[in-house]
Write a protein that binds this DNA or RNA. Sequence first.
DNA 1: TAGATTGTTAATCGATTAACAATC
DNA 2: TAGATTGTTAATCGATTAACAATC
Lengths: 213, 213
Amino acid sequence: MERKEISQAVIVRLPRYYRYLGELLEEGVERISSGELSRRMKVTASQIRQDLNNFGGFGQQGYGYNVQYLYEEIGRILGVDRKHNMIIIGSGNLGHAIANYANFKRRGFIVNGMFDIDPDLIGESVQGIRIRGMEELESFIRENDVQIAAITMPKTHAPEVADRLVRAGIRGIWNFAHIDLAVPEGVVVENVHLSESLMRLSYRVCSMEDGQE
Amino acid sequence: MERKEISQAVIVRLPRYYRYLGELLEEGVERISSGELSRRMKVTASQIRQDLNNFGGFGQQGYGYNVQYLYEEIGRILGVDRKHNMIIIGSGNLGHAIANYANFKRRGFIVNGMFDIDPDLIGESVQGIRIRGMEELESFIRENDVQIAAITMPKTHAPEVADRLVRAGIRGIWNFAHIDLAVPEGVVVENVHLSESLMRLSYRVCSMEDGQE
DNA sequence: TAGATTGTTAATCGATTAACAATC
DNA sequence: TAGATTGTTAATCGATTAACAATC
């Protein structure tokens, strides 16, 4: 599937293309040119064409891009055409928020297990998903062919849990803990560091006030 | 405070420096060289020195950087030395997760109001924060000098709410809704698009399997 | 066919890394 | 002082934008 190395910048933009194409599809738009899409997304048409051509020629000269086709192709590239079994480690508010978010399911991310250390939570159910104790972690991953784990627990035990996940064969970690996890080659970590995001917002608000941005 | 334009890439990295310096401080480390920090953070020493010099000469030749001093300076740059009043629009799990996260408070982000449209939630309290109806939004922002609003509600009404926030004088929007908000100059939007983050993870997991990354 | 718009090459711009003189 | 390490300039690398020939 992969020809050359795709740059990180392109990968970051890809889901946003997917979102806009989904919206166009809902609006009933059948075809779109890079120029028109560029106006909507506020990026250059050049960038859109360059980005898409990393993966192949999806368009047609004189016509543009077929929305449905391009949407499906990008979906395939992102892997949302497949099913991914997913677990959530940490059943606090954030874990609940993710478990409840129905759109993930639509994209093929099936949460089939939640875990916690709190005995009061173990045995409870969220959206039909049972909360389990940590001792079941490895067996559950193996038996349910789990690919992705979201870590939504405090940072203290996150590295240790990450090690267990890796050893149990997880392929991707969606890390919400405020710490950088060390994983071996072949395992992917995607960080969501909310406090860093909030500080960036704060920086920009403040620099707006003093100098102007 | 601002000399020249600071690049987006630098701003993204800044909170991570802050986090590592905070950890060093807790470890009792008094001084650190760009070389040693580069080993810890797995970035080049050159990049660290370049990044910091955007804001001034915090180091000393032959010595390195004083951890405490650098930590405080970066905190000042990020604006975490000040108080920011903050509200949360949307009191679902995600709103609760943010309200409950005590570390934000430590960094000066004070959540003093939560809002929702659900009559069952209005009047309830989370962490001592009362959940209010949307009709109180504008008056609350003005009376409590609120600078930052987190939008943790479904995307449908997010643009409309964003408009109200802007008109009421909010300076920064922390947007968790899966939509791009249009705001005038002088107002800052920081997006946290979880579904896009998850798709990036999915992409990288899949491309690991087919070709190798 | 003529017009539109892609795919792709070339030019520009910006960010990262390397190197080293300044200096603590 | 000598050694270490910064601040900063110069070199390299990569990403974005512009341009245009190919082609539907």
